[in-house]
């Protein structure tokens, strides 16, 4: 139950964003499901990775980009929608708020601590996405080359 409820909330939050970003129909459900599953990955990798949240975010991002690429193939549409909306439960929105709040309070120490933590979360999410998308790109390029080579021969 303690795994299920946060994922349900993540699902609902993503569903709200689907409406705002104008995704409808089965796409909206799949996007939101991606958000919920990514949060599940984040929670499950916790005990394995020694509760280091930066690493947990990395694995969640890897899972999510793989999910987005698969769904983009299945539904024949860009992966952007999935990457954008399903990422919302993961992104450090609270972190950036806390960071700027500390800056406005004049608490430099807290500003630096939360700021660096926010940046490292954002960084690990970005690395997770880039690892998968670079691999997919390389594979596409390889396929493309093979196909154009094959087409050249009679």
């Amino acid at each position: 139950m303690e795994l299920f409820l946060p994922c349900l909330y993540a699902f609902l939050a993503c569903l709200g964003f689907c409406v705002l970003f104008r995704i409808s129909g089965p796409g909206a459900v799949l996007c939101s499901l991606g958000g919920a599953l990514a949060w599940l990955v984040y929670l499950l990798t916790g005990p394995i990775m020694g509760n280091n949240d930066v690493i947990q975010y990395f694995w969640a991002a890897v899972f999510l980009s793989a999910y987005a690429e698969v769904m983009a193939r299945v539904r024949k549409c860009p992966a952007t929608g999935y990457l954008l909306i399903a990422f919302i439960p993961l992104v450090p929105g609270a972190g950036i708020y806390n960071m700027m709040d500390a800056a406005l309070r004049g608490d430099t120490q807290d500003f630096l601590t939360t700021g660096l933590h926010t940046l490292s979360i954002a960084g690990s999410l970005a690395v997770g996405v880039l690892v998968v998308s670079s691999l997919v790109r390389m594979q596409n390029m390889l396929q493309h080359r093979r196909r154009s080579k094959g087409g050249g021969e009679p």
Partner: peptide
């Protein structure tokens, strides 16, 4: 309540996209 409510303006999304663009 405040942290939940400000998520509607999604500042976290932009900072993740910033990292992606820089690294790409």
């Amino acid at each position: 309540i405040i942290i939940g409510a400000i998520m509607a303006q999604a500042p976290g999304l932009v900072i993740t996209n910033f990292m992606r663009d820089i690294m790409a």
